[in-house]
Simulated assay, not measured.
Amino acid sequence: MGAKTALLVFADRHPADLLRRAPALSPEATARLVVRTNPGWNGATAERRSLRHALYPPEGTVHAGSFPEVDVLCDQQVMVDRPSALPDHLLEAGAHRGRTILHAMHSVVDWFAYAVWEDGTLVRALSVSPGDGVIEDIGAPLDFEPPYWAGEHPVEPVPGWPGAGEPYPLRFHPLDLGEAALRALLGFVVEGLPLPTDIDAGSVELAGFRVPVTDPLTQEEIDEFRRTRALQRFTYGPDGTLVPVED
């Protein structure tokens, strides 16, 4: 899986109902959304991209669109380990909408997090990864979750992959749950076969903006990461399976 998302949506109704006909964004309202969420923005713009291809913009770039009854922001600053701790200025940007949806996942570490606020009140927040387990679990699971917690979508081992003989730390793969959440909450998926009821995320156009990089890692943090994480490299053996490289 190569799915990554950094998505924050403010909506008065189900986002899929509002985006299904690919409405045209409002340039003025979209610029106001970017100012509220990135106060240091100096007016610089970037190329437009479709929602499908803007879900995880590079640092220093955001993609956004303000449409009738729904605002969409793709921005790496929404990727917080604990969704309940989403910075206030991001939540306040959608205070005029009835529902706020956060969806974030990163395939490199198999991490997924999402949260839903109704009229400013947090009703559900979840953050999971195989390395850290359940990082945050607030509120009752939404309707798409129970089959995953019940073990109906187990992770099948991949022959030759490191740890293939060990049970997966979770009862499901976080990115599988992330795809289910994306469809249930926003009406489309990143990977997998689309359903007839899914929206065409490729037809929803977002504007691009160059913004200051927020909260960059310090050299001390980078050094600490390298000190506490052992780098393990792998290569393919004669039989095609992965084997560790001994340095």
Rank of each mutant, 00 (worst) to 15 (best):
G40T: 10
R13D: 15
A11W: 03
R49V: 07
A16S: 13
L19M: 07
W41C: 06
A16C: 04
A31R: 12
W41F: 12
E47D: 14
D17G: 13
T37K: 06
G43T: 03
L8E: 06
D12I: 05
P15C: 06
A24L: 12
W41I: 04
T37G: 10
A11L: 04
R48V: 02
L8M: 11
L25H: 03
S26W: 05
T37A: 09
R32S: 10
A16M: 06
A31G: 06
L19R: 00
L25K: 00
N38Y: 06
A6C: 15
L33H: 08
K4S: 15
A16E: 08
A29V: 00
P27C: 07
P15I: 00
E47A: 14
P23Q: 05
A29E: 12
L19C: 07
V34L: 04
E28D: 13
A16N: 07
R48F: 05
L25C: 01
S26L: 04
T5H: 08
P15L: 02
A44E: 15
A22E: 04
T30P: 02
A46V: 05
V35T: 12
E47N: 15
R21M: 15
V9W: 01
T5C: 14
D12F: 03
R32I: 10
T5R: 02
A6M: 12
W41Q: 03
A29K: 09
S26A: 11
A24C: 10
R48K: 11
R21E: 15
T5V: 10
H14T: 13
A31L: 07
D17P: 04
L19P: 01
A3N: 02
P15D: 02
V34G: 03
F10N: 07
E47P: 04
T5G: 03
V35A: 15
R49G: 07
T37D: 09
T30D: 02
N42A: 15
R21H: 15
R48W: 12
E28V: 11
V9K: 01
F10P: 01
L33W: 06
T45R: 13
G43S: 08
L19K: 04
N38Q: 14
V9T: 03
S26R: 09
A31C: 12
A11N: 11
R36C: 12
A46Y: 06
G40K: 10
N42Q: 15
R48L: 09
A29R: 12
V9P: 00
T45C: 09
H14N: 13
D12E: 08
H14P: 07
T30I: 04
A16I: 01
